[in-house]
Structures are given as structure tokens and as C-alpha cells.
Deep mutational scan, measured.
Amino acid sequence: NITYDSTPEDVKTWLQSKGFNPVTVNSLGVLNGAQLFSLNKDELRTVCPEGARVYSQIT
């Protein structure tokens, strides 16, 4: 699982392990844990089509 202390590499690995598509992995894999957790559902949806699914995994 990812935490606020996760590195971008951790986030990328976590996204891949959850089966998100490469677009999602590449879009969000540049963020660290704190940055990812700071995004709300609408912001995640704006960044990638699977944003709502990512949001449900981190809340």
C-alpha cells in the first residue's frame, strides 16, 4: 500500500500492481504519496480516465 511518505517510484509500482492502465500509471506515477493523496476525485478524473477508480483505492 502507499502512504504519505511513498516515493513516486512506490506510487508507480502500486498503480501497476492494482492493474491500472499505462496512461494512468504514467500520469500519476510522477507524484509522491502526499501529492497523490492531496488530489480529490474530480482532479484525479481530470488527469486520467481511471481517476475515479484511483480515488476509491486511496480513500
Rank of each mutant, 00 (worst) to 15 (best):
N1A: 09
N1S: 14
N1V: 06
N1I: 11
N1T: 12
N1W: 03
N1D: 15
I2F: 03
I2A: 00
I2E: 00
I2H: 00
I2W: 00
I2T: 03
I2M: 08
I2S: 01
I2C: 03
I2D: 00
T3V: 05
T3A: 06
T3I: 01
T3R: 09
T3S: 12
T3M: 08
T3F: 12
Y4N: 07
Y4S: 11
Y4T: 15
Y4G: 07
Y4V: 15
Y4R: 11
D5R: 12
D5M: 10
D5V: 10
D5N: 12
D5K: 14
S6V: 00
S6G: 04
S6F: 01
S6W: 04
S6A: 07
T7I: 06
T7R: 10
T7Y: 05
T7C: 10
T7N: 11
T7S: 12
T7A: 10
T7D: 11
P8S: 14
P8W: 02
P8V: 12
P8Q: 13
P8L: 02
P8I: 13
P8N: 09
E9W: 06
E9T: 12
E9V: 10
E9M: 07
E9Q: 12
E9D: 14
E9N: 11
E9F: 07
E9L: 12
D10C: 09
D10G: 08
D10P: 01
D10R: 07
D10F: 03
D10T: 08
V11S: 02
V11A: 02
V11G: 02
V11K: 01
V11N: 00
V11M: 01
K12P: 00
K12S: 11
K12L: 05
K12I: 05
K12Y: 05
K12C: 09
K12N: 04
T13V: 10
T13A: 14
T13C: 13
T13N: 06
W14C: 02
W14P: 04
W14H: 05
W14R: 02
W14E: 04
W14F: 09
W14K: 04
L15P: 03
L15D: 00
L15Y: 01
L15F: 01
L15Q: 00
Q16N: 06
Q16F: 11
Q16M: 08
Q16E: 13
Q16T: 14
Q16I: 14
Q16Y: 08
S17C: 13
S17N: 11
S17R: 12
S17M: 12
S17W: 13
S17Q: 15
K18L: 08
K18V: 09
K18H: 08
K18R: 14
G19A: 07
G19L: 05
G19M: 05
G19V: 00
N21E: 09
N21C: 11
P22S: 11
P22C: 11
P22G: 15
P22T: 13
P22V: 13
P22Q: 14
P22A: 13
P22H: 12
P22N: 10
V23L: 14
V23A: 12
V23G: 08
V23I: 14
V23P: 10
V23F: 11
T24V: 07
T24C: 05
T24W: 00
T24Q: 01
T24M: 00
T24D: 02
T24P: 03
V25A: 06
V25N: 01
V25S: 06
V25I: 13
V25G: 03
V25L: 09
V25R: 05
V25W: 04
V25T: 08
V25F: 04
V25Y: 03
N26T: 12
N26S: 13
N26E: 12
N26C: 03
N26I: 08
N26H: 06
N26L: 10
N26A: 14
N26Y: 07
S27K: 12
S27I: 09
S27H: 06
S27G: 09
S27M: 13
S27L: 09
L28G: 02
L28A: 02
L28H: 02
L28T: 02
L28S: 01
L28E: 01
L28D: 03
L28N: 12
G29D: 04
G29E: 04
G29C: 07
G29T: 01
G29A: 06
G29W: 00
G29H: 00
V30C: 14
V30T: 15
V30N: 15
V30S: 14
L31R: 05
L31Y: 15
L31E: 02
L31I: 04
L31Q: 03
N32M: 01
N32Y: 00
N32W: 05
N32P: 05
N32A: 07
N32I: 00
G33V: 01
G33A: 07
G33D: 04
G33F: 01
G33T: 00
G33I: 00
G33E: 01
G33W: 03
A34R: 14
A34H: 08
A34V: 08
A34I: 07
A34C: 08
A34F: 10
Q35R: 08
Q35S: 13
L36Q: 02
L36C: 01
L36W: 00
L36G: 02
F37T: 08
F37A: 08
F37R: 09
F37I: 09
F37S: 06
S38T: 14
S38W: 02
S38G: 12
L39Y: 13
L39A: 10
L39M: 15
L39D: 00
L39T: 06
L39W: 04
K41H: 14
K41G: 10
K41M: 14
D42P: 07
D42Q: 13
D42G: 10
D42E: 12
D42R: 11
D42N: 10
D42S: 12
D42W: 07
E43G: 09
E43N: 09
E43Y: 08
E43Q: 10
L44K: 01
L44T: 03
L44P: 01
L44V: 10
L44D: 05
L44N: 02
L44G: 03
L44A: 11
L44R: 03
R45A: 14
R45D: 14
R45P: 06
R45C: 15
R45K: 15
R45G: 15
R45V: 15
T46D: 15
T46S: 12
T46E: 13
T46M: 12
T46C: 07
T46P: 03
V47F: 04
C48E: 06
C48S: 09
C48K: 03
C48T: 12
P49S: 12
P49Q: 10
P49N: 07
P49W: 05
P49F: 05
P49D: 10
P49E: 14
E50T: 00
E50G: 03
E50W: 00
E50A: 01
E50P: 00
E50Q: 11
E50M: 02
G51N: 02
G51A: 07
G51L: 02
G51T: 04
A52I: 05
A52M: 15
A52C: 09
A52V: 10
A52N: 06
A52G: 12
A52F: 05
A52K: 11
A52P: 12
A52Y: 10
R53V: 12
R53N: 07
R53G: 12
R53Q: 11
R53K: 14
R53D: 12
R53H: 11
R53A: 12
V54R: 02
V54E: 05
V54H: 01
V54F: 01
V54W: 01
V54D: 03
V54L: 05
Y55V: 06
Y55W: 15
Y55T: 05
Y55P: 03
Y55N: 15
Y55L: 10
S56F: 08
S56D: 13
S56K: 08
Q57V: 13
Q57Y: 07
Q57R: 09
Q57D: 15
Q57H: 14
I58V: 15
I58C: 10
I58K: 06
I58Q: 04
I58Y: 01
T59V: 11
T59E: 05
T59N: 11
